[in-house]
Every structure is written in C-alpha cells, then in structure tokens.
Write a protein that binds this DNA or RNA. Structure first.
Length: 228
DNA sequence: CGAATTTGACCTGCGC
DNA sequence: GCGCAGGTCAAATTCG
C-alpha cells in the first residue's frame, strides 16, 4: 500500500466543546457538528486537561470518549503545504449553510474544515468513491462560488464522495470556498466504521513524527446513533 | 475487463 | 402551491 510516512504532517484532535490549539497545529478552521454546531470559541478547555484517552494505544489514543454523546474526531493535519485560515469564516459559512438551506444537522456526525490547497481532494487515508458532482449557481445560498472569469453568474462545483469501503456510509463533500477559491472546504458526514488503511494515532500532547496520510478522521462514538 | 469517474436526470426539502 | 437549490442515482464513458 502506498502509505509513505510523512514527517510534515501535523496532528490534532477536535471534539465537541474543544478548542484546538490553532497555532500549534496550524488549524483554526474546523467545525465539529454533532447534533448541531460546535464553535471554536465554545470552550477553553483543552482535550489534554479535560481527559486523557482511556484505553488509548501505547502510541496514542483511539478510544477517547467525550463528555456528551461520545463525539470524538481525530484529524490528522495535512502537510505543510496546506494552511488554514480563520475559524470564523468557516463557521459563518456553515451556519449559513445549515441555517438557510436544508443541510441541517440531523444527528449525524459532521466535521467540516477549510484548507488552503490547490488540490480539491486530499488523501485522507480512506478510499473514496465519487458519486456526484453539482454545479452551483451564484446565489444567496452558501454553496455558491465565484468562478474565475465567469462573472457574477458564476457556478461552483461541489463534489460528492462516499467511502468505498463496504458497509461504510461516510460521505465527503468537497467544494471550493466561494470567498477564496484557493481554499477548499471539506465536509465529512458520518463516521467510519472501519479503520483507515493508513491510520496512525498519536497522543494529543505529542507532535507526531509521521502520519501516513494528510487527513484522518475517526470517531469513537457508537455508530448506532448515527447510522443511516 | 473491471473499476472508477463523469454527468445529466430525478427526487426531496425549503423558502417565498 | 410553485420554484429553486441541494443531494442522489444510474447509465455512459474513461482509464488502468
């Protein structure tokens, strides 16, 4: 398998009510959506202070539980050629997205983040199958995006992916940020019920030396609550 | 030849 | 109730 170790990967861990050390991990745009929005300013508690990972592996954690309904998101940060900007833009984006149109959270686990990348699809260690693509016209709706050279009636492309692993119903929506086309907004919807082919976990307090792929997303919460 | 991607059509939900 | 937009499906096409 092509899982080269990448020493440039950063690792972080976000969950409900947890404010990540953005500067340390170069993450400021993130959103954990579990039955609603969780904003970055929602808590000053860090994961490290609130709970260490029970039952975690010697190399990190894999079974942490959150205070509420078990939402845990593990994000393996991308290589250094990605950078992430302000959380507020993503949050406002998703607020609009979920408030204006029908993309409301309905109990599923949803995580969204924005990265600066020329590539729309980042290798997150999972295998994705593209099942849809949508051109979105420029409109007051949040999915719009100005396309270069196409004026105010620009369209944006939203790509829809499903996890290609059998029985795994996680979806990923990838789209360009309408405000800044250099950014890519990736939304993960659901929880993988299987291991990433190339997942490595690290302790929160330990900067990883290597993470196989750019993005890893896992959740320790029971799948029954989010099964669709 | 099989798997993955593309793309237009269709369905559903929400706002007006 | 109608129109619009988001999301999904599935046949066709492309690629390895």
């Amino acid at each position: 398998m092509d899982c080269p170790e990448n020493p440039n990967h950063y690792y972080s861990y976000f969950r409900e009510g947890f404010d990540p050390p953005a500067t340390e991990f170069q993450v400021s745009d993130y959103l954990v959506l579990d039955d609603g929005f969780v904003e970055d300013e929602s808590s000053s508690q860090s994961m490290a202070s609130s709970e260490q990972v029970p039952g975690g592996s010697p190399t990190g954690y894999s079974g942490a539980t959150s205070r509420n309904n078990g939402m845990q998101v593990i994000i393996t940060m991308p290589p250094l050629d990605y950078s992430i900007t302000t959380a507020s833009s993503l949050i406002s984006y998703l607020k609009c997205k979920n408030g204006v149109k029908k993309n409301k959270i309905e109990g599923g686990h949803r995580v969204a983040f924005r990265t600066k990348s020329e590539l729309e699809v980042m290798d997150d260690g999972f295998k994705w199958r593209k099942y849809g693509k949508k051109s979105v016209k420029n409109s007051p709706n949040p999915r719009q995006q100005l396309a270069p050279g196409s004026g105010s009636q620009a369209t944006a492309c939203v790509n829809y992916y499903k996890c290609s692993s059998g029985g795994c119903d996680v979806k990923k929506i990838v789209e360009r940020d309408r405000e800044d086309s250099t950014f890519v907004i990736t939304t993960y919807d659901g929880v993988h019920n299987h291991e990433s082919p190339c997942t490595v976990y690290y302790n929160y307090n330990q900067m990883p030396m290597a993470v196989p792929h750019a993005w890893t997303l896992q959740d320790s919460s029971p799948h029954s609550s989010s099964s669709s």
